[in-house]
Design a protein around this nucleic acid. Structure first.
Length: 788
DNA sequence: TTTGCGGTTTTTTTT
DNA sequence: AAACCGCAAA
């Protein structure tokens, strides 16, 4: 979508004159289609905007804010606008400023659920038993803390890892459940009945540490609102209008949070797309959007269905796919664009060929002078990225990977932060523990354990305990000296903190602690990058008035550097691609098991499948002009070669809008050609009808007995409909039907990829084979045949 | 206390 | 295949 709207002349809030001036379609309203305009102008009461992909959702949101301000309905400071990501918040802020001018700089309540919650909590911390300088823990801190709690309860940490408890607690918090609210049945799932107890113990630990985790930010706010109605009422007064972006991604806690705040004036506008709900696995409730009209009776519902992004074929393809989902409110995207190029589907022999085909296309585009920053490769799982990267490096196409660890999740940033946290608040035990032996100083578990014991006995913090213990004979002289030096160093830094610029201070701390030196000495490849990150951290430090506000910024808001603006192909997961668009989109790996992902299917059945389909829909709708799908018949998963079938999603695409492309490779000749041709036939003629599919399934039941044989393996590779049916990876299917392997050690075998070899050992259906050319590999027996 | 070996695990990811 | 974790040896 392009916004060429000029900013409206800026009416000053307060005068009747400006309200009158806004009457004949103010500038910012121009260029909106009727639905968009309705979504903007329905200012009062609950509003649900169902905004399909590429229908101008952000534009509606920002224009709506501009409209509220321009018509004097609210001051910027009276509008609460919530997003999920910092990126979305930033973008919205920018675009509102473009429409309304610097007045928008106010917008103090435009932010993520978490940052707004943190802001509220800092103001009223004492009401929920916190001090206003509480620390916000990230996932890593959480898990370390959980481990401690689990150990303290004397539970086998192996059987019940901290990570798992974190998962449980997180999902409880997502649903707005405090320890006492957890249903008994569920709290018993973890550690034979101790789940709820551990949750309570963890919350207790957080309280003594004066810390909260991400989930708590929301949960404590709920407590705050519920237990202090007068406070809630004051926020009703303040927040005249509430706007919510990506409503389909809200979890129960966020929903309750919104409902409490919206209760007062009921001016809440939620924008979302049920067809783009792809975060169910982390607690998002599509139901929130499906239920909106029920929760807010009398709501105005606006559907945005006119797509401004993709050409006809692409849009039709996406629409047809998503129509297969049952749990949806139903929208039909339409475009006035030309039909454009058909969507292509290309089968590759294996994932390497797939990568090669994609890189060839990109090189061709590059030589035609197309802009590589308008090209994206979107994958289902990050494991697919490596192969693509290797290939692009090989052919010298510049690329960038989007996603990956956030800036503040990187070890070096977290270490540096821990040092600073110790300087700012010496009672921060988690921070102290993190850096007490980083760089290695010889203060290991034994020392820490001693400090812990002392701290528990006296009620001191670890730092205080260290100070005390250093004066005793309890530690070996060496450890004692080192620890004393560390404690003294912190005392020194604290005394300097007042007088110094925080950037300088940070540099000093990192230098004197030996932390910088640690990375300078490190010879590993990423050490230089880490030092660079540390520099970046120090640089950004001076943009903040003081250290505490910086720490808050880093733990909640700071993003990884988005890289330079050079023209590069983008590689990312489908999840990371939501909200983005590109002229050309490559979608590799459309295979059963990978996409739809087997695990999603196993764990969530039908709902899982529908979420995968929404993910596919998100992928398809990222493309403006060219959309290219790929599947590979063989892919290495966890080190084993697995044969795979084309994704069922491919069969669900409308044949009029897609085109099957023959891969121009060596494999198209010889034995494989025939089976591929079969696939083409089936795709073109009959794949759509349920009856045909059923027939294929029956055929598969009778026809798939054999586990060896060259031609059989060839058909597996490319025959799509032929073996349609259970969504198993081919190898597993064979393993189940065959039972034990038909091969003995010493047997000569032939593998379609690795050629001839001898069986070295047999383990169920897995063979270890010494191939004459390829060396020793582990393969499934279904991929080899007996050979002489 | 540290290092290295072996056994295990393997989606998606924001705050 | 690779990364991660816990444990045992140096």
């Amino acid at each position: 979508m392009s916004d060429h709207t000029t900013s409206a002349p800026l009416p000053r809030p307060g005068g009747l004159a400006s309200r009158a001036a806004a009457q004949p379609a103010a500038g910012y309203l121009q260029g909106l289609n009727p639905e968009q305009r309705q979504a903007v102008e329905a200012t009062d009461g609950p509003v649900l905007v169902l905004a399909g992909a590429g229908t101008g959702k952000t534009r509606v949101l920002t224009t709506r804010i501009a409209h509220l301000i321009a018509t004097n309905r609210a001051y910027p400071s009276q509008i609460l606008a919530v997003t999920f990501t910092n990126k979305a918040a930033r973008e919205m802020k920018e675009r509102v400023a473009n429409l309304v001018g610097p007045v928008a700089e106010g917008m103090p309540w435009l932010g993520t659920f978490h940052s707004i919650s943190a802001k509220l909590l800092r103001r009223h911390a004492e009401l929920v038993d916190l001090r206003s300088d509480f620390t916000i823990l990230d996932t890593d801190d959480q898990i370390r803390l959980m481990k401690q709690v689990i150990q303290a309860e004397g539970i086998d940490e192996k059987r019940w890892p901290g990570r798992m408890l974190a998962g449980f607690i997180d999902s409880w918090k997502n649903r707005g459940l405090a320890p006492k609210d957890v249903p008994p049945g569920e709290s018993g799932v973890f550690a034979s009945g101790k789940g709820g107890k551990l949750y309570a113990a963890y919350q207790e630990r957080l309280k003594t540490l004066n810390a909260v985790d991400f989930g708590d930010l929301l949960l404590h706010c709920l407590t705050l609102f519920r237990e202090h109605p007068e406070l809630l009422a004051s926020y009703h007064e303040r927040f005249r209008y509430i706007l919510v972006d990506e409503y389909q991604d809200t979890n129960v806690a966020q929903y309750l949070w919104l409902r409490l705040l919206a209760q007062g004036r009921r001016n809440i506008a939620c924008v979302g797309d049920d067809d783009q709900s792809i975060y169910g696995w982390r607690g998002a409730e599509v139901d929130n959007i499906l239920r909106f009209e029920h929760d807010f009776p009398g709501a105005t519902v606006v559907r945005l269905e006119r797509n401004y992004r993709s050409t006809g074929h692409i849009l039709a393809t996406a629409a047809k796919l998503i129509a297969r989902n049952e749990g949806r409110l139903g929208k039909t995207l339409r475009t006035e664009d030309e039909a454009g190029e058909k969507v292509t589907i290309t089968g590759a022999w294996d994932s390497q060929e797939e990568a090669r085909l994609i890189s060839d296309e990109i090189e061709a585009m590059q030589s035609k002078g197309e802009n590589l920053s308008e090209v994206a490769i979107l994958v289902r799982i990050s494991a697919q990225m490596r192969e693509m990267e290797e290939r692009l490096i090989h052919v010298g196409v510049p690329y960038r990977v989007i996603g990956g660890p956030r800036f503040y999740e990187r070890a070096e940033i977290r270490d540096a932060m821990a040092y600073l946290r110790c300087v700012v608040s010496p009672t921060d035990d988690l921070a102290f523990e993190r850096i007490v032996n980083v760089p290695k100083r010889g203060l290991g578990d034994a020392t820490i354990q001693l400090l812990h014991n002392h701290a528990r006995a006296t009620g001191f913090s670890l730092m205080q305990s260290a100070r005390a213990v250093v004066e005793t004979e309890e530690l070996k002289p060496k450890a004692r000296t080192t620890l004393r030096e560390l404690v003294e160093a912190f005392a020194r830094w604290q005394s300097k903190a007042e007088a110094m610029q925080q950037g300088e201070l940070a540099e000093l701390v990192l230098e004197e602690s030996g932390y910088t030196e640690m990375w300078q000495k490190d010879r590993s490849a990423d050490a230089a990058g880490r030092l660079e990150n540390l520099k970046e951290l120090v640089r950004s430090l001076d943009e903040f008035p003081d250290l505490p506000s910086f720490l808050e910024h880093v733990s909640l808001v700071m993003d990884a550097d988005s890289g330079d603006g050079g023209a590069r192909v983008s590689i990312m997961t489908l999840h990371a691609a939501k909200g983005l668009e590109f002229d050309t989109v490559f979608l590799p790996g459309w295979e059963e098991g990978l996409f739809p992902n087997q695990r999603a299917l196993d764990e969530n059945g039908r709902a899982g499948l529908e979420e995968e389909r929404r993910l596919a829909h998100v992928g398809l709708t990222r493309a403006r002009k060219r959309l290219k799908l790929y599947f590979a018949s063989n892919r290495r998963i966890h080190g084993l070669w697995q044969s795979s079938l084309p994704s069922r999603f491919i069969d669900e695409l409308p044949e009029d809008h897609v085109e099957v492309v023959q891969a121009p490779t060596a494999y198209s000749q010889g034995g494989y050609g025939a089976s591929r041709f079969e696939r083409m036939e089936s795709f073109g003629s009959s794949y759509q009808t349920p009856g045909w599919q059923r027939a294929q399934e029956n055929k598969a039941k009778f026809g798939s007995g054999g586990s060896s044989g060259f031609s059989d393996a060839g058909q597996r590779g490319f025959g799509s409909g032929r073996q349609r049916g259970p969504m198993l990876i081919e190898g597993e299917l064979t393993a189940k039907s065959t039972g034990t392997s038909a091969y003995d050690p010493g047997a000569r075998v032939f593998h379609i990829k690795f050629g001839p070899g001898s069986v070295a050992s047999v383990d169920g259906n897995k063979l270890t084979v010494d191939f004459d050319k390829a060396g020793r590999k582990m393969v499934l027996d279904s991929f080899v045949q007996k050979a002489g």
